[in-house]
Design a protein around this nucleic acid. Sequence first.
DNA 1: GGAATAACCTGGATGC
DNA 2: TGCATCCAGGTTATTC
Length: 308
Amino acid sequence: MPELPEVEVVRAGLEPAVRGATVLGVEVLDERALTRHALGAVDFERRLTGRRIRAAARRGKFLWLPLDPRDVTDADAPEAVVGHLGMSGQLLLRDSGAPRERHERIRLSIAHPDHGDLAVVFADQRTFGSLALDVLEPTPDGRAGGRGADEPLVPGQVAHIARDPLDPAFDDRAFRAALRRKRVDVKRVLLDQTVVSGVGNIYADEALWAARIHPETTASLLATRTVHRLLAEVRTVLTKALAEGGTSFDAQYVNVNGQAGYFAHSLNAYGRTGAPCPRCGTPLVRVSFTNRSSHFCPRCQKQQRSLS
DNA sequence: GGAATAACCTGGATGC
DNA sequence: TGCATCCAGGTTATTC
């Protein structure tokens, strides 16, 4: 499932092809891919066609492509194409006129001054992902909106999303304070995108395993040094996964060229129910966690009952 | 206001 | 072979 490393691989792959490109045309094949764009397909196509893309930016699992203003009167309300891949979304770069992808929902035809005519294809099997046009807002801290963003702006739809742990402007102190306030499972906090973005079920399980923390430990019970360790492991896991091109279990996650990542071979806990813990050899277990699963080692991730 | 839960959705895997 | 059921899970609206 696309989490921070997978989305960053997509962003980095898109950037050289879309930065400076002009949108020649937009085809919306399935309007469900515009659930975040309240004004519908006709409005999306009309407002996007002819616009020049300035960059490819990302915060957590959200991507956006800032656009040049339509005209001088529009300069005060900068806009961007915002995208979220959901569970199975893909953004693919294809030659102009390439055949339809399976589950293709939206196609942008673009012209780049160096790379010529290309197609940016948004394909999504489970239709949890979507694109939208949104207004960019100033960031409260005055820092760049996210990775790849040249300006201190962020789409309105992304403004409530916290920065991710690999963002230089991530606030470690605010993260620690949020954990101290939360009387819920630490894993739930890791998945709360308003506290820390970019972490999903896979990397939450991996970081908790690496930090030797039981996923059902109440967040507010974690000692300060344990929180430091957890944040360090989150960063380590995300960085390693990014270096290996992300995690691919099936065809649902690929980069812009349709290639899978390799981090699935490096997973220590996620999806390894019954396999020996790489640290102690104890069989890993899986427990139900809201509508999903948690994977952990019952021996080296003991549940914390009190402050330590 | 914080926390918990349901709903959205498709296709692969599994069981009968 | 065909059908039914389960499962995967990010985000958001709703409910408590």
